[in-house]
Amino acid sequence: MSIYWDLPVLLVVVSLVYAATRHDRWDKIVREAVGWGVRIAAFLMSIGLGLYLLSTYL
């Protein structure tokens, strides 16, 4: 199994736990966690895309 399948576990837990240390209300926790999850996923995917392009076209 590829190690990339392990990344969603890390992403979900880090987003939820970090958001829960910033707020006490669940609606705010969920909203902040989704925001962090999207940002972390976009960051990881941009790095993955960059490495893919480098390895394919360079």
Partner: peptide
């Protein structure tokens, strides 16, 4: 390391309090 944030949340509450 995340549990350090959890310990602080228990010690002094969340960053944005209600």
């Amino acid at each position: 390391v995340l549990n350090l944030l959890v310990i602080y949340d228990a010690f002094a509450g969340p960053m944005f309090r209600e």
